[in-house]
Amino acid sequence: MAHNLNFNADNNEYAFFSVKQRAWHGLGKIVEQYPTSAEAIKYAGLDYTVEKRPLFTFDTENHTGDPDSDILIPEIEVPNYFANVRTDTEKVLGVVGKDYQIVQNIDAFEFFDAIVGGGDGILYETAGALGNGERIFITAKLPGYIRVGKDDFIEKYLFLTTSHDGFGSITAAFTPIRIVCNNTLNAAMRNHTDAIKIRHTASANDRLKQAHKLMGISNNLADELKDVFNHWSKVRITDAEVKKLIQVAMVPNKEVLNNLMAGKNDELSTTYTNIVDKVYEYAMSSPTQQMETTAGTLFGAYSSVTGYFQNVRNYKDGEAKFKSIIEGTAKQRAQTAFDLCSDFSKHLTTNFLTLN
């Protein structure tokens, strides 16, 4: 089952909710209005707590050969290790060390509410739990949007995931979404970070409450993105320059990069050249690339890379697509494209291979 959503046998429901649009897996609860955090945590089946409980081991002795004569040796406590147990189902979610700090699901929602002081500005889009409830995720829309030109709007989203199994950190990421073509962007601003990771230590909850400040999530960040994208929408770029930018942005390894730098195009793999051709075709023919802000502009060149991963590339399933955009290849390529466009806008040069 690729979605791996937690299924609650008591209420016969999957631990997932979405606003208005049903997710790719077709499961969970669909609601028409944006819920409060208190409502969202219930809709998503996240209204449970986790406890750290001591671990014990035991053994048996049998000197008769009769299995019914087993003697149970007294339990021995395992030092410095604990089981994280979900209290409503008594499921063990993972084994953790003595310094591991549980961050309850409700604390994750408080991270979002802290951004707007607990007001009505946060709009919860999706949330859910995976496996037995050992990992949760939340996506929420931030107040306002970024406007590029007259007709291009970019909404501001936050994604957070945390776990109760002892693996992985608490991760929060800033993700703008382009409304016109639902084009997911993962642009990391210089002098800011688009993601933060927090270890499950004693200070985890305090750090989580301040995470949005560390991430620079504010109107200042939105204003900077707005200024960058609007500037890019006025910077002209030729078709040949777009093709070259795409070639560099989509480089998968140093070998391909070296071949590009040496002009050994005949040694480039068929897979790589096909991807470049598809991204370039999207840049030249997609309706969203023919707008005033995108046609022949640097913003359009950047959008062609991110738009390929959102609207053209084939994935195994929706989960694979989601992971690629949030933390995988799609995000990495978008970051490279963002850096290339940023340098191009400053130098107005096509020599992408020598940048950075």
Rank of each mutant, 00 (worst) to 15 (best):
M1A: 14
L5K: 10
F17L: 08
A23D: 13
H25N: 14
G26V: 04
E32A: 13
T36D: 08
A40V: 05
Y43E: 10
T49H: 09
H63T: 15
T64D: 07
P67K: 14
I73Q: 03
I76L: 14
V78T: 13
P79T: 06
A83I: 09
L93N: 02
Q101D: 12
F111C: 10
G133Q: 01
R135H: 02
G149D: 05
G149V: 09
D152T: 10
I154C: 02
E155P: 03
K156E: 15
K156P: 05
Y157R: 08
L158P: 04
F159Y: 15
G166N: 08
G166M: 00
G168K: 06
F174V: 08
I177V: 15
I177A: 11
R178H: 12
R190W: 01
K197H: 15
A204N: 06
N205F: 00
R207T: 13
I217A: 06
N219C: 00
N220C: 00
K226P: 01
D227E: 14
H231C: 02
V235N: 04
R236P: 09
I237F: 02
T238Y: 04
E241V: 03
L245S: 01
M250W: 08
M261W: 01
G263C: 07
K264S: 10
N265A: 12
D266N: 14
L268S: 05
T293P: 05
L298I: 01
L298K: 07
A301F: 03
A301W: 00
T306C: 10
G307Q: 07
N311I: 05
D317L: 08
A320I: 01
K331A: 09
Q335S: 09
Q335L: 06
F338T: 03
H347T: 14
L348T: 06
